[in-house]
């Protein structure tokens, strides 16, 4: 059963990534683009966890955790830049 379910989920997540990408290109404003990037990294996280299940490997956990941490820091840095025009204050 998993042999069919996992490719299906890969397609669904790929579709979600494509929709995020459309929003990222279309904008129209800077917060919209940052929001699109934020969603993009969370969806990439789902993709990596899924890939780990597919390969039956535990090694992808570190990658997923790192993406989660770095993505959050990136979103907060971009948000602070928008709010104050400065990242470190």
């Amino acid at each position: 059963m998993l042999a069919y379910v996992i490719p299906f989920c890969l397609v669904v997540i790929g579709l979600a990534l494509a929709l995020n990408l459309v929003r990222l290109v279309k904008g129209p404003s800077l917060p919209d683009r940052i929001l699109a990037l934020d969603t993009l990294y969370i969806n990439a996280l789902a993709l990596i966890v899924l890939f780990g299940i597919w390969l039956g490997s535990d090694l992808f956990f570190e990658a997923a955790l790192l993406i989660a941490v770095m993505g959050f820091v990136g979103t907060v840095a971009a948000g602070k830049y928008l709010l104050h025009g400065d990242i470190i204050d």
């Binding site: 669904v12 929709l19 699109a36 899924l50």
Partner: peptide, 16 residues
């Protein structure tokens, strides 16, 4: 897996 990926898709559709 199916539930999770469908929720991710709903979020992306909302964003779109």
């Amino acid at each position: 897996l199916v539930l999770g990926s469908l929720f991710a898709l709903v979020g992306a559709i909302g964003l779109y």
